[in-house]
Amino acid sequence: MRKNKLGSRIIAFTFLLILAIIWVVPLIWGIVTSFKSEAEFSTIGFKFLPINWVLTNYTELLVNNASTPLFHWFANSMIISVSNTVLVLIVVSLSAFAYDRLQFKGKNALFYFLLATMMFPSVVNIIPLYKIIDLLGWVNTKWAMIVPGAAGVFNIFLVRQFMSNIPISFDEAARMDGASDFTIFRKIILPLTKPVLYVVALFTFTGSWNDFLWPSIVFNDIDKMPITPGLQLLQGMYQSQPTLLMAGAFIAIVPTFILYLFAQKYFLQSMSLSAGVKG
């Protein structure tokens, strides 16, 4: 039986190693290609690594900021994603607290109604949502991406589920001491809810950063758009300069990559968290 186990470990390792090559090659290839010069890339023939490592692709992106202001897009994306995350955290934690801890008329009916709307395919509301953004004067502004994302229900469900495991006696003790609902929320519940709020924050940030269809609809002003629709423009503009495109793509994935390095634990546990409450 021991031998059997060792055998299955070797098979598993080999299988994973083959897949790992498929997963890692595009990443490495993309990154190293961004350090090749255009001339070397198109004339020398296929070489995996650069002969001369150069930064020209990055400097060209930095300098050439009229038609494809990549670093501008990067800043726009950063402002949008951070603001959206902060707004979602505030809105979600307040709501989750009320649905879990407070009593009000029609609470359960309202909550189940919200949950039921999650079944509704979001594709239906893209066109009318654009009109609402237009009426608010938010086309080509960051608001178009910051606010609508806070309408979601799933995070409220997730956080409420987590809050329901905090003993109610904590609240009661504080209430005896004369604490208001808001104080209980702020001083007792919120600190204990931190782990799930990290998860919400990470997923909101990456979701916001990576959103593609919606920003390509609400932005047509090149200076105002975030980086994901920007990259599509970049691809159209520099079809003949793949090394430059790689530099652009690499810049766009750096923030979420860094976030992942530091908060891998939360990313990985969150997936099982969300499947767990649903399953």
């Binding site: 994973l16 897949l19 790992a20 890692v24 595009p26 990443l27 599509q232 970049l234 793949p242």
Partner: peptide
């Protein structure tokens, strides 16, 4: 298996990237 944590992290990583960046890499 050996390197399990590394494999897990690697396979999960691309899901954190924007589709436009992913497509630019794969196009090449």
């Amino acid at each position: 298996p050996k390197l399990g944590k590394f494999f897990q992290a690697l396979f999960y990583l691309p899901s954190l990237f924007a589709i436009s960046a992913v497509v630019i890499i794969w196009n090449l």
